[in-house]
């Protein structure tokens, strides 16, 4: 199209500035360390523990989150009920409320009679590893619901209708038609929520605490090392987080481009 050169130059300039800003941040990290320090740090017991704990807790939190988010997102997307917009808003709260506030709310909950009962009789969350999973779940579940809702919204209801006329019940159609149609959206939601869980800090540190080699996830490791002025170690852990996030984004991009070709 002819014209629009000034507009194009303006938006590309902003794009270039933002890209430079992000590259600048990463390059500034390199100035604080070198490859030898990074590799030595990565092989330390503390960082290996943090990587292992982050991967395990984020994976469990993502699995639980997906199991819960799939029916919830489908219900919000496909059904009409009284007070739907209120329920929808409540479920969205973790997206806009600070993770520290969510962590504090969880902590307060476990000081109520019900919370104390759960802690004493079922499973301990406060300052324990299950607390990390619960904190991550609380933060990422809203994101999973939101992403899956938009996936279910985008599915043409005709597919389910045809499935029903071909002899399948509503439940069978959900498993045999809806979930396969939502496959890419499910994977994208799982990847994004998992990456978000890996990076979760605020709610985790409030509920599970920041205890070395106990509740030390990767973000907690960064916090603890910065607090003790061990910047090289903190930077090495930041690189681990950046690597995990990059892999997640590459997988997501591949899924998205595959989806666009449908």
């Amino acid at each position: 199209m002819i014209g629009g050169g000034v507009f194009k130059a303006a938006i590309l300039s902003v794009l270039a500035l933002l890209t430079l800003f992000m590259c600048g941040l990463i390059l500034s990290l390199l100035a604080y360390t070198d490859l030898k320090t990074v590799s030595a740090t990565l092989l330390s017991d503390e960082v290996l523990f943090a990587i292992r704990l982050s991967l395990i807790t984020a994976t469990i939190a993502t699995l639980i989150s997906m199991i819960v988010a799939i029916p919830v997102a489908y219900a919000i997307s496909q059904t009409q009920f009284l007070g739907k917009s209120i329920v929808d808003t409540i479920l969205d709260l973790p997206i806009v409320v600070s993770p520290i506030a969510l962590g504090a709310a969880l902590l307060v909950f476990f000081n109520t009679p019900l919370g104390t009962g759960i802690e004493n009789r079922l499973i301990r969350f406060v300052f324990e590893v299950p607390g990390i999973i619960l904190a991550q779940f609380t933060v990422i579940n809203a994101l999973a619901v939101r992403l899956l809702k938009s996936t279910f919204d985008s599915i043409n209801p005709r597919y389910e209708q045809v499935g029903r006329t071909l002899g399948y019940s509503k439940m069978q159609v959900f498993y045999r038609v809806t979930l396969p149609l939502a496959r890419n959206g499910l994977i994208a939601a799982a990847v994004l929520t998992w990456a978000r869980a890996i990076g979760e800090f605020g709610a985790t540190v409030t509920l599970a605490g920041a205890m070395k080699m106990k509740t030390e996830t990767l973000p907690v490791a960064i916090f603890l090392n910065l607090a003790t002025a061990n910047v090289e170690k903190a930077v090495a852990v930041i690189f681990v987080l950046i690597a995990i996030a990059t892999i997640a984004l590459i997988i997501l991009r591949k899924m998205t481009s595959a989806r666009e070709h449908i």
């Binding site: 043409n156 005709r158 597919y159 209708q161 045809v162 029903r164 006329t165 071909l166 002899g167 399948y168 019940s169 509503k170 038609v177 396969p180 149609l181 496959r183 449908i262």
Partner: peptide, 20 residues
């Protein structure tokens, strides 16, 4: 009676072939 028990063949306007 739900659609799965009506023994009907239905072809919608957009055909709705399962893409997977």
């Amino acid at each position: 009676v739900p659609p799965e028990r009506r023994r009907i063949g239905y072809v919608p306007q957009d055909y709705a072939l399962f893409p997977f």
